[in-house]
Nucleic acid binder design. Structure first.
Length: 645
RNA sequence: GCCGUUGUAGCUCAGGGGUAGAGCACUUCCUUGGUAAGGAAGAGGUCAGGGGUUCAAUUCCCCUCAACGGCUCCA
């Protein structure tokens, strides 16, 4: 007998060799019907694998992540089986589960596989699923494994097997399909009740662009048809939040082929929104002791030779421009820090001056490959809400803490709860690729982690992700379609102070090297606005939205009064426009709602006579009559509450 | 940069070898209205750009550009 400990701490005595599935059955038949896989001593395995020793056991169902990935991993095999049925002779590479579904990388040879072929594959998948074929695990020797895929002529599997040790190779077979696989898998294909191929894309074998490009087929499956329908609805909803669509609809920004790709043009409403964000951040920074500087859009190539950027990124950047007579070379500014270093150097600095927090909304230009450009999130010209903090090594932790406070304040004000802080540290196996003393690194790495914990951030630590010049803390958020983007960043830098020979005079009257902290709470205004649009689905917070109030005269007869109301609201610093079109008020309301104007003020005979307005809030409806002044106070109070620290 | 898809009016899209259509938006007129679409008329397109096949190309073929979905990259 062996002892099985369940997550609730309860224990069961079962015969050696009992499977998780059998234990599930003994708990309840309903549970057994839903078990997809199990964790035995923390390792995810097939639910029907015999358990041989005392163990902790967790059963995975569709309701937990491990259950889902098991299901999707098995679904990848099912899709492969279906694809082979339609396209005999295709070569299969890898087919893992991903966050939402799974994919399989396939070498279709000469065959073109496109969206038009999805339906038949889905149909076959479901037919195969209905057969409830079991996923059968088999341990095979390396020799046998190689022999099987040599016979099948699948060089990708052979390459994978090549990298495996004899004795750790397993095959899984379901129906007529056998695949090299570590597992685990769901008990049988019958759990898969709905399948949808989502898209196809090119993907290099082993992610290396020197290798052959395979066809990656993305798909997703569900244990219920209705869940698939819900998921597809969710995708539709997400598409409506896409900042590229909303940006166009709301008149925020545009692109012009003639101006160049990746170069956004901010329209009046977008520019208004952006300037408001800048004003908001400028004010917050001012309170935190930042000073503002301004530097040009180009800088001598020598500046970037000194900073090291030329050597590291010069070939992959916009190439230098030269002066017509002298042939001097200038770079479009890819980053602001070298300029800021020179400002630091412009006068002697004392330890009493530190920290110096030098901020600039600096527009930078970076070459991005054409295939990489993406709305406002990935562009070639963008404005960073940049700042560089020059401080002593002892001040680093405190300063990083203050930056985190700033980021948290911003995220809170913008109602942005869903972000992850990624702490990027050195690769412990490769210490030589980093510059700066061990002592400083350790202090900085420890400092960043401590302060992130003190501030209560939800963090993940990534080893080896640090920049060569220092550790960093990045704020990651997701867009409407679930893609991850980096917004804010805090980076500690020992490199530039060295390269630019920055120094300050210490209390000991000796020269010391400052530490530099790069930080950008938004990251870039472009990317931030993009994420903000998707986050609030275009319905910006009242303090930020370009048009806070629209006045809707009931008929043209009241246009003069509407204009008067608008002017009066403007005098209270409220952004109000009025709709003077010859339309019925119902139409004007609809248009204002569609354009996401927060407040609508309906004015007609009664309002004109009483010097009042009838307020209506988007999504809520009629708020009743009130004086212009009390409406203005209401808006003002609402905004003040939003911006409270 | 690579693989795939797409490109028709300001927007969303239909069409299709015989030089274009709808809805919305826009302009004008009628209507002067009370909480999510009043009516009529009008204007607007080298069918992304270039080349080829053809009596004839927006339609078929090739190239370029751009956008989209990924991959690689990313200061």
């Amino acid at each position: 007998m062996i002892t099985i400990t369940l997550p609730d701490g309860s224990q069961r005595e079962v015969a050696k060799g009992t499977s998780a599935m059998e234990i599930a059955s003994s708990i309840s038949e309903g549970l057994a019907r839903n078990v997809l896989s199990a964790s035995v001593n923390g390792v995810v395995v097939d639910a029907n694998r015999p358990i041989e020793t005392n163990a902790t056991l967790k059963l995975h169902t569709w309701n937990d992540e491990d259950g889902k990935s098991t299901m999707w991993h098995s679904s990848a095999h099912l899709m492969a089986e279906a694809l082979e049925a339609h396209y005999p002779g295709i070569k299969l590479a890898i087919g893992p589960p991903i966050e939402n579904g799974f994919y399989y990388d396939v070498d279709f040879g000469e065959v073109e596989f496109s969206q038009a072929d999805f339906a038949k594959v889905e149909k076959t998948m479901l037919e195969l699923a209905r057969q409830k074929n079991e996923y059968i695990r088999k341990e095979v020797s390396k020799q046998d494994a190689l022999a099987y895929f040599t016979e099948k002529g699948d060089q990708y599997k052979l390459e994978l097997i090549d990298g495996l040790n004899d004795g750790e190779i397993t095959f899984y077979t379901q129906g007529n399909f056998t695949d090299l696989c570590r597992g685990p898998h769901i008990p049988n294909t019958g759990f898969i009740k709905a399948a949808k191929l989502l898209n196809v894309a090119g993907a290099y074998w082993r992610g290396d662009e020197k290798n052959k490009m395979l066809t990656r087929v993305y798909a997703i499956t569900f244990p219920k048809q209705s869940e698939l329908e819900d998921y597809l609805k969710l995708l539709e909803e997400a598409k409506k939040r896409d900042h590229r669509k909303l940006g166009k609809e709301l008149g925020l920004f545009t692109f012009s082929q003639k101006v160049g790709s990746g170069l956004p043009l901010w329209l009046p409403k977008g520019a208004d929104l952006r300037m408001r964000l800048v004003a908001f951040l400028t004010q917050a920074q001012k309170k935190m002791g930042y000073v503002q500087v301004i530097t040009p859009h180009i800088g001598s190539k020598e500046l970037y030779v000194t900073s090291g950027h030329w050597e590291k990124y010069g070939k992959d950047s916009f190439q230098p421009i030269s002066t017509p007579q002298e042939g001097e070379l200038y770079m479009l500014k890819p980053m602001n820090c070298p300029h800021h270093c020179e400002i630091f150097k412009s006068e002697p600095r004392s330890y009493r001056d530190l920290p110096i927090r030098m901020a600039e909304f600096g527009t930078v230009y970076r070459y991005e490959q054409t295939g990489e450009l993406h709305g406002l999130t990935r562009v070639r010209g963008f404005t960073q809400d940049d700042a560089h903090i020059f401080c002593t090594a002892d001040q680093v932790k405190h300063e990083v803490g203050k930056v985190i406070d700033l980021v948290l304040y911003i995220f809170k004000t913008l109602d942005f709860p869903d972000f992850l802080a990624q702490v990027s540290l050195r690769d412990p196996n490769n210490p030589s690729k980093y510059i700066g003393s061990d002592e400083n690194w350790e202090k900085a790495e420890r400092g960043i982690q401590e302060v992130a914990n003190e501030k209560g951030l939800k963090t993940v630590v990534e080893y080896g992700e640090a920049a060569f010049y220092g550790p960093k803390l990045d704020f990651m958020v997701r867009d409407a379609i679930g893609r991850k983007w980096q917004l804010g960043t805090v980076q500690i830098d020992y490199n530039l102070p060295e390269r630019f020979e920055l120094e300050y005079t210490g209390a000991d009257n000796a020269k010391h090297r400052p530490v530099m902290i790069h930080r950008a709470p938004f990251g870039s205004l472009e990317r931030f606005v993009a994420i903000l649009i998707e986050h609030c689905a275009g319905q910006f917070p009242l303090w930020l939205t370009p048009e806070q109030v629209r006045i809707l005269p009931v008929s043209e007869k009241y246009n003069d009064y509407a204009r008067k109301v608008a002017t009066e609201l403007n005098s209270y610093d409220i952004r109000a426009l009025f709709d003077e079109r010859n339309e019925k008020v119902g139409k004007k309301i609809r248009d204002a709602e569609v354009e996401k104007v927060t407040y609508m003020l309906i004015v007609g005979e009664e309002e004109q006579a009483g010097n009042t307005v009838s307020a209506r809030k988007k999504g809520e409806g009629d708020l009743g009559k009130m004086s212009i002044e009390s409406f203005a106070q209401k808006v003002d109070a609402e905004i003040k509450a939003m911006l409270a620290e």
